[in-house]
Design a binder for these strands. Structure first.
Lengths: 199, 199
DNA sequence: ACCTGAACACCGTTCAAGT
DNA sequence: ACCTGAACACCGTTCAAGT
């Protein structure tokens, strides 16, 4: 036993995160466990703790990678678009990602750090960065509005789109026969922006 | 052992649900377990399965009671209010409940039934009932709008308010220094309704 | 230094056995 | 009929021991 050195620390981290992502994509966050991760990569439980502080740390790092993928799609979606179209493109890209990567996207919000422990700063930084994409386009669209008003509107719209996705996937607000979430989001943006862009 | 008959089935169900509610209120859904529930009520694990199908069933029933409490507050909030004020009152009452009963309210959305298993019909019925409160007030406010438009608007607004609460409590969209969620919700409703009530 | 695997304290669920 | 408590298969985490 011991000392195999088939992988560097960084390689071990990478294959563990990939294994975790596969497990979550297939069975949701509840289907993830340390033992299943190491089972997939041919290591034993203990070795995970060489690379991650614990399971919560692994999940946080996995979710951070999901955020990176999401942000890349968002940035691609607004490329070259004027502000009004960009805001709609951001919402649609968010929904498209949530629809395509449902389990991985859900895991971002399902996971909660234990009581006192905060998320790593790099994590919150990525969330803030994504949020600023909306804020920038809103500021371009409504140059007369104060920074405070822009922040408020960005939060209202982004939270709104997120809520539409969350409740759309839960069985909680059963969508059977209801309007598709793209249309709900479009309604939210269109009507809100009418009110917000007016004098 | 066996055969104590200190409680009827219904009483056992009641004290178990109360114990579960206390555990969740104090430590969140993650702090709930069958063993902790029976520890609190002086029974052993096996006895839980006389009254609940499994832990998921217990949680679903607990969440249904939370929905009942929430709905009661919502109904009280709109009493005697004209439609426009009633819609704002619904949003504020939802936020107030989420702020006061954060863990129990979060548990409604954190819990997910295993793969195939759907939520009991009584559960989805209560969600639908709550949702219809919004729909009714919107229909009163905008009698010209078609039922389809009313449904779309109700879903957009209710999902929006929900998303504002969810992201407000997550560290995910860090609220530090940001506007309070009541104000974000007010912004969402005000601007949306300007656009929606216009010709 | 790297990795194992046993150990520990938990967990959900089942079920033979007791009253 | 009601309830127990042992049993089973899982889980996250730690750490002495091996190379």
């Amino acid at each position: 036993m011991g000392r195999r050195n088939e992988h560097t620390r960084e390689e071990l981290r990478e294959i563990a995160l990939q294994a975790a992502e596969h497990l979550v994509a297939d069975h949701g966050l509840a289907g993830l466990s340390t033992r299943k991760v190491v089972g997939r990569i041919g290591y034993t439980v203990g070795s995970l703790y060489m690379v991650f502080r614990n399971l919560d740390d692994l999940i946080a790092q996995m979710n951070e990678r999901t955020l990176e993928a999401l942000q890349a799609r968002l940035i691609a979606a607004i490329a070259g678009q004027p502000p009004a179209a960009a805001i709609r493109a951001l919402a649609q890209a968010y929904i498209t990602f949530a629809l395509a990567e449902t389990h991985r996207w859900l895991a971002i919000y399902q996971h909660r750090m234990p009581e006192g422990q905060p998320l790593p700063e790099s994590f919150t930084a990525k969330v803030t960065g994504m949020f600023e994409l909306v804020q920038q386009q809103l500021a371009l669209l409504c140059p007369r509005r104060s920074p405070g008003e822009i922040t408020l509107a960005a939060r209202a719209l982004w939270s709104g789109v997120h809520g539409i996705c969350i409740l759309g996937f839960d069985q909680k607000l059963e969508m059977a026969g209801g309007p598709p979430i793209q249309e709900v989001a479009r309604s939210l943006l269109d009507h809100y922006l009418v009110g917000f862009t007016q004098p």
